[in-house]
Amino acid sequence: MRDFRKYGVWEQSHKLVLELYRLTKGFPADEKFGIVSQIRRAAVSVATNICEGCGKASERDFARFLGISFGSCQEVEYLTLLSKDLGFLDGHSYDLVQFEITSIKKQLYHLIKKLNAES
């Protein structure tokens, strides 16, 4: 069994969740059940699926959960773009989030590739 805390990609995704919770506190109240909820769920899904995958016995199952995590990153990427375009997220915050998402996606991609080669 793997310890999710030992993966840098999990640590970075956890920090992203905390940052997105902080940023979305400033979104309009009428978006609480819309974009705010969706961004938060997608961001949490990135970190959660890494954790869940760590509990799987095979490399193939671990890679599958990392793939789900990657998909959630894509969702966060779009939702933050939408938030910026709607004026809920300033350009600087958007750029920082995008940098983190890109980094997480690269790490997930390489880890998935490595696991698939081993299985």
Rank of each mutant, 00 (worst) to 15 (best):
R2H: 07
D3K: 13
K6I: 02
G8R: 05
V9Y: 12
V9N: 14
W10K: 07
E11S: 10
S13N: 07
S13E: 07
H14Y: 07
K15R: 12
K15W: 00
K15Q: 12
L18R: 13
E19N: 14
Y21Q: 06
L23E: 15
L23N: 09
L23P: 15
K25P: 03
G26W: 02
P28I: 04
A29L: 09
K32L: 14
K32R: 15
K32S: 14
G34F: 01
I35M: 14
S37E: 11
Q38E: 12
I39G: 03
I39N: 03
A42Y: 03
A42L: 02
A43P: 04
V44L: 12
V44R: 02
S45Q: 04
S45C: 13
S45N: 14
V46P: 09
C51H: 02
C51M: 15
C51F: 01
C51N: 13
E52V: 12
G53E: 11
G53Q: 13
C54Q: 07
C54D: 11
G55T: 03
K56M: 09
A57T: 05
S58Q: 02
D61Y: 02
A63T: 08
R64V: 04
R64L: 08
R64W: 02
L66N: 09
L66G: 11
I68P: 05
I68C: 06
I68T: 15
F70M: 09
F70N: 08
G71M: 09
S72L: 05
C73H: 03
V76N: 04
V76W: 03
L79I: 01
L82S: 00
S83C: 01
S83D: 03
S83R: 00
S83L: 01
D85W: 00
L86Y: 00
L86H: 00
L86C: 01
G87F: 04
D90V: 10
D90T: 06
G91D: 14
G91A: 13
G91H: 06
S93R: 12
Y94N: 06
L96M: 10
Q98L: 04
Q98G: 10
E100K: 09
E100C: 03
I101R: 05
T102H: 06
S103W: 00
S103H: 05
I104N: 06
K105H: 03
K106E: 10
K106Y: 12
L108H: 07
L108T: 15
L108D: 10
Y109L: 15
H110Q: 14
H110T: 15
L111N: 06
K113T: 09
K113Y: 14
K114P: 01
K114T: 10
L115K: 07
L115P: 13
N116G: 01
A117P: 01
A117V: 03
A117W: 04
A117S: 14
